[in-house]
Design a protein around this nucleic acid. Structure first.
Length: 431
RNA sequence: GCCACGGUAGUGUAGCCUGGUUAGCACAAGGGACUGUGGAUCCCUUAGCCCGAGUUCAAAUCUCGGCCGUGGCCCCA
């Protein structure tokens, strides 16, 4: 093999691609039904856009380069930043809310492993302009709707709220920057380091215990809320956070989503998340089991826009496909060839072309172009699982072709004028 | 960036430990026998030791490095 593909990239073969397109279409249909409109942004952006959102450290995980004009550019590592840039550039004065969706490839320079590639695909939405509970709940409901539509069963939806933690830290006079740093440590799940950081902030022992206690709040809603109320007793502003979180959950339940887990230990490590955050895990997947992540955030101002409440999420499209595969969900081949036209002699090729052109106006149809003998051409159709073959022989001169059912091993003569209606009947029986 | 295991035609493999014939087999692919009818049979063809260096008279085989793959760690916007 002279050239191999770059590390962490993939070639997608025909059957696989048909399955990917099928899943992509299903996701799009659900997004569209919720009123989201597709947008697309460039494959690469200014490096600064990425670092503005995610910090300088991110550069180590980027594909970045200088173009011939000396500009620092980077292949997009995710789509939230480009979408919010687009919003700030073009759509700030559009009627609110804005419901936008995207589907695209992203690039990260990381060590490939199961469910992790250097070029991967994300599908997601941003709901811009509302901070209402129902707006926040809608994006979670949308995730749920997509997963139901796809038929994925083995997943867990975990919902958290970093507003509560932020509030406790703020009440202790801790600024937003340090808050963000603490969130990062929490996201890592390194308890020893978290203890250390909290000690460094010289928080009273009681405050530390409350913070650590909040992180332990996981489980069903009723139980978590009860424990949270006990833990946060007397802290009115923090309890207010909790109550507005509950309003989101109320709305979510109105949307019909009830099978979620609360987890107030989710931090998502991002300083622009403001309140509600959520993640979806497919436990059959192994180390890279998160198939979706999102929440409510404030990012427009980072890109020079007016602050605007936004909620959104991104699906790891490749992981969705892996999850479907692991669960044995059968995906239909949307590109299946239904018909094949075979000329029964060289002089009949022009007629065969005409017949194939006729069939191709409505159906997937292959034309024998290898100049093979009928026998070999039929063997090909058989090997490819093409269910119907149209043989073009001398009868074509009387306006007739032979229509062969490969599975039933039967064939009959059909007038070319009637072909369209005959094929329509066949296509109806072969969805 | 780190760890483990792996890499022989398009695919799956034998050979590697114990260096030594022309690197074997199956399937797949293209062609042919078979003259207007598909899973059979026979024949032919195409096609391979991941790359590089080292050891050696001699390397698919031993050593080292790189690349790639699989899984895990770190990270995961």
């Amino acid at each position: 093999m002279k050239y191999s593909k770059p590390r962490g990239t993939r070639d997608f073969l025909p059957g696989e691609m048909a399955a990917r397109r099928y899943v992509e279409q299903m996701i799009r249909r659900v997004f569209i039904r919720f009123g989201y409109k597709e947008i697309a942004t460039p494959t690469f952006e200014h490096l600064e856009l990425i670092t503005a959102k995610s910090g300088e450290d991110i550069v180590a995980h980027l594909y970045h380069f200088k173009d011939k004009g000396g500009r620092d550019l980077a292949l997009r590592p995710e789509l939230t930043a480009p979408v919010m840039r687009l919003y700030v550039n073009e759509l700030q004065n559009s009627p609110k809310p804005l419901r936008l969706y995207y589907f695209g490839n992203c690039f990260r320079y990381e060590r490939p492993q199961a469910g992790r590639y250097r070029e991967f695909f994300q599908a997601g939405v941003e709901l811009i302009g509302s901070s209402s509970p129902e707006a926040q709940a809608e994006v979670i409901a949308l995730v749920n709707a997509v997963l139901e539509e796809l038929g994925i069963r083995e997943y867990e939806l975990h919902i958290g709220n970093i507003g509560i933690l932020r509030k406790i830290l703020a009440e202790n006079g801790i600024g937003e920057e340090v808050q963000a740093h603490i969130m990062g440590v929490i996201d890592k799940g390194d308890e020893a380091q978290l203890e250390e950081e909290l000690n460094r902030l010289e928080l009273p022992e009681e405050e530390k215990e409350v913070i650590l206690g909040v992180l332990e709040l996981k489980g069903r809603r009723g139980e978590v809320v009860e424990r949270a109320e006990a833990l946060l007793a007397g802290r009115e502003s923090v309890l207010k956070e909790l109550r507005s979180f509950e309003e989101i959950l109320d709305a979510l339940e109105s949307f019909g989503v009830k099978n979620y887990h609360l987890n107030l230990g989710i931090a998502r490590g991002l300083d622009y998340y403001t309140g509600m955050v959520f993640e979806v895990y497919a436990y059959k997947l192994g180390a890279e089991k998160q198939i979706c992540g999102g929440g409510s955030y404030s990012l427009a101002e980072v890109f020079g826009g007016k602050p605007v409440a936004t909620s959104g999420f991104a699906f790891g499209f490749d992981r969705l496909l892996l999850a479907l595969e692991k669960e044995g969900v059968k995906l239909p081949d949307t590109e299946r060839t239904l018909f094949m036209v075979i000329p029964m002699g060289r002089e009949l090729v022009p007629y065969a072309i005409e017949v194939a052109s006729l069939v191709r106006r409505s159906y997937v149809c292959e034309l024998e172009v290898m100049r093979r003998k009928v026998k070999k051409a039929l063997a090909y159709a058989d090997a490819k699982g093409i269910p119907y073959v149209i043989l073009v022989g001398e009868e074509i001169k009387e306006g007739k072709v032979l229509l062969k059912d490969m599975r039933a091993k039967e064939q009959r003569e059909v007038n070319v004028e009637e072909l369209e209606s005959v094929l329509a009947a066949i296509a109806k029986g072969n969805p």
